[in-house]
Design a protein around this nucleic acid. Structure first.
Lengths: 257, 257
DNA sequence: GAATTCATCTGGAGA
DNA sequence: TCTCCAGTTGAATTC
């Protein structure tokens, strides 16, 4: 049973007491405050005052969010120490990181509200269909790319980088396969072209296939210009296959449906 | 004067009412809940139940944090709609994005606490020494790179991408300059090589200089093999120059020290 | 520990 | 809209 506490409009002194206690007992803290942020480390920055949401997690991560967007205004992923002080009507939270040496200072003029959670529960884990899994699924089901294709190598290292899949088609020709989990842009086509060029320089005849859910116009054009091919894959279908696999093997993915 | 509200242990129905109201009036919401997350879009994922912090910002961004680390468990940066329902003892928050089509569903079994802020104030803005500023500083002080160098163009667009700085040295030769704010890896050297190749294909003799605080072994080797040069810059010195500039011009950077 | 690569990367600028 | 590229990128894996 989690223990939660909420505070509206605490004074600076009370807020300092609450935060110190929460940090000491590794609680999970979230508070709204009007504050400035100062950061010095790999870069240096300073902000004007504004309303922000400050999060301090049980593991010591500190994250400061502004009112817009996905990205935090500032953060400290792996703090070695967090200290709380109050002086001259300001609440000051200082988070220090050792390597690289970085200091984050949050100066709060007023604290609007504080929420604290002492949770006995670990966050649930999660799983998703990433490029690795797409690659492995295609490696074990190469007919999804082309009938008669046989995969010889996965993540084959060559000079310009890594070839996702490397196989032989039904007519015995070498096939280099580049996989993108999202819409493939021209850059992906260029990358495949670089790999192919490497093999052709070595005097080998080779086909190149870009595999992705979709591709931009520029990518398609670049592929055709380089004598390469595009093969569309259906992510939802692959996800379904993964779920089937998971069900039959009763593996880690059993939570999927 | 911001308006803030806090709620401890609201029931599912009350929580739904509070959240709907907050979203409708574009308030800033933060709540602790035991929940699962389902996401389908560019990837697909589902989690087991766990305690998490959910943030809904005035601009419609949704962020879900687990108890550890800097990165959120899940998010939706630019929602086109957020809906709140309750059914069978569950509070369900659904955030949908149009392009790319993505759906994020948060199912809460219990809500530990809710914090809401109606803030009249925009978050403060901030500034730091980024690659942009390094580039501009070097453009107006090219002797920091080389005595007698004259800058002709900044962010010059060519086919393979953008050239950071483009100039002419004291002997009248063309110079292409690639800047990195952090330690330059082999990829930076390759990028410069691609630019240089573009000019040399055009039949022009040209020097290439990689400018960075430091460079990896692989980068240095690649540079020497391609007949390119490396020039170390001192970030602290540039930062000092920036502060001097800011002081004398009383410009936007006056907060820096 | 350094270096390399991926990420639901995000975000911004330019054509 | 697409493309290119920076980021206090972070995080994981390999060397």
């Amino acid at each position: 049973m989690p223990l939660e506490l909420v505070h509206a409009q605490p004074g600076v002194e009370e807020a300092a007491r609450i935060l110190s206690h929460g940090i000491e007992y590794r609680m999970w803290i979230s508070f709204f405050a009007n504050c400035t942020i100062e950061y010095e480390g790999r870069a240096a920055s300073r902000t004007t005052p504004g309303d922000r949401l400050v999060i301090i997690k049980p593991d010591g991560s500190v994250i400061v969010h502004g009112p817009r967007g996905f990205k935090p205004d500032n953060w400290q992923p792996d703090t070695s120490s967090i200290t709380v002080q109050h002086s001259e009507g300001l609440l000051i939270v200082k988070a220090v990181r050792r390597r690289p040496r970085e200091v984050l200072v949050i100066k709060c003029g007023s604290i609007h509200s504080i929420m604290i959670l002492k949770s006995p529960e670990e966050g649930g884990f999660w799983m998703y269909l990433n490029e690795h899994e797409i690659r492995d699924l295609l490696a074990s089901n190469p007919s999804l790319i082309e009938e008669g294709l046989r995969i010889v190598d996965v993540e084959k290292r060559i000079d310009p980088g890594f070839v996702d899949l490397y196989g032989i088609d039904r007519e015995g020709r070498l096939v280099v396969i580049e996989i993108k989990r999202v819409k493939a842009g021209e850059e992906a086509a260029k990358q495949l072209a670089r790999y192919i060029e490497y093999f052709r320089r070595g005097g080998r005849s080779v086909r190149g296939i870009l595999v992705a859910p979709e591709a931009t116009e520029a990518a398609i054009y670049r592929l055709s210009r380089e004598g390469l091919e595009f093969r569309r894959i259906d992510l939802a279908r692959l996800y379904g296959m993964l779920k089937e696999q998971a069900k039959s093997s009763r593996g880690i993915l059993r939570y999927l449906d």
